[in-house]
């Protein structure tokens, strides 16, 4: 299988008054055509900064991508000029956000926003672009697409806006879709609809999807492979089944043991009466401990963990983690 997105050693820092914040440190992964790679982690783990780095959407300064490459079909996005990058956003790599209003202009009708993008990227005429916009809205299953195309974003419900944003992101058939918590703000029944929609479109268009999420349920349902991030670093990577069956990093093991599950009453999942806790909190990124960043919260940590950062290495076939103890 050919990889469409190849991220190598991505390192992003922020220059702040409180010093250098290492938001993303040497993160690498690849995504194949039609594949979904999930990046999971909690707030502050660097997953959103990773996504914004791929899109080159971070404000520079204070941010700076100090190392690495982001290759989409062979072209390194970090090496092209701004004009080329603008062309590639939308046509090669597109992004959808948790809050659709960050991507939709409140002053322009939804149809016109999609049409403008198609005109820009594909040089289509106004009338054709207009028709394409309505087609895309129909494609994402928005009822009465002709009427909805003439509406402003605020006239739509949250789920509908999310669909409109997906329509816009996929209108030019990008090879890579970066989805940053696309369903986190939605109700659970709407979340299920949107996840189905992204999956259907992905199968149809062969899009490679990078799904950023904190929800392990969403990961288990839609991802084929998973990257786990903690404090700016990749700490584990594996196919989804292997990761959930046999997590190698104590952080991932802790996360899986700490989430309550629906279905315990139905016997679909078993659960102790008491949830397992991961003690402590995620360390601030400008005060990272010298060794493994998870060591202060880890039951297994010893002197070596606290002194020396563990290498990211293979622990089983196609299953890698950064831990001295596994």
């Amino acid at each position: 299988m050919s990889s469409v997105l190849e991220v190598t050693d991505l390192t992003t820092v922020f220059h702040t008054r409180r010093g250098l914040v290492r938001a993303v440190q040497g993160v690498s992964f690849t995504v194949n055509r039609g594949e979904t790679l999930a990046i999971v982690g909690e707030s502050g783990c660097g997953k959103t900064i990773t996504a914004l780095s791929l899109m080159r959407l971070l404000p520079i300064p204070p941010a700076e991508i100090v190392a690495g490459s982001v290759k989409v079909a062979g072209t390194d996005l970090l090496r092209v000029d701004d004009a080329t990058m603008r062309r590639m956003r939308g046509s090669e790599i597109a992004m959808i956000f948790q809050e659709p209003m960050t991507a939709l202009n409140p002053l322009i009708t939804v149809g016109r926003q999609i049409a403008e993008m198609v005109m820009l990227h594909e040089g289509m005429g106004r009338a054709a672009a207009r028709r394409k916009a309505v087609d895309m809205l129909r494609h994402v299953k928005i009822p009465e697409p002709e009427r909805r195309a003439r509406e402003y974003p605020h006239q739509m419900s949250g789920g509908m806006r999310q669909r409109a944003m997906i329509a816009m992101a996929l209108a030019c058939r990008p090879k890579v879709l970066v989805a940053d918590e696309p369903t986190t703000a939605l109700d659970v029944t709407i979340q299920a609809q949107i996840l189905d929609l992204i999956g259907d479109l992905q199968r149809e268009l062969g899009t490679a999807v990078v799904l950023i999420t904190h929800d392990l349920g969403v990961v288990a349902e839609v991802a084929q492979r998973v990257v786990v991030m903690y404090a700016g670093r990749k700490v584990e990577e594996a196919p989804v089944a292997a990761l959930f069956a046999d997590p190698k990093h104590p952080y991932m093991r802790g996360l899986l043991a700490s989430i309550p599950r629906v279905g315990t009453a139905r016997g679909l999942a078993s659960m102790d009466d008491r949830l397992q806790e991961i003690p402590g909190i995620v360390p601030p990124l400008n005060e990272l401990p010298p060794g493994c960043a998870f060591a202060p919260r880890c039951k297994m940590a010893d002197a070596r963990c606290r002194a020396e950062a563990p290498p990211f290495e293979m622990k089983a076939a196609d299953h890698a983690a950064a831990c001295w103890k596994s």
């Binding site: 979340q191 996840l195 349902e221 989430i259």
Partner: peptide, 10 residues
């Protein structure tokens, strides 16, 4: 039915 389950075998 809509709640995503953190278990890829289901």
């Amino acid at each position: 039915a809509a709640v995503p389950m953190p278990d890829p075998t289901l």
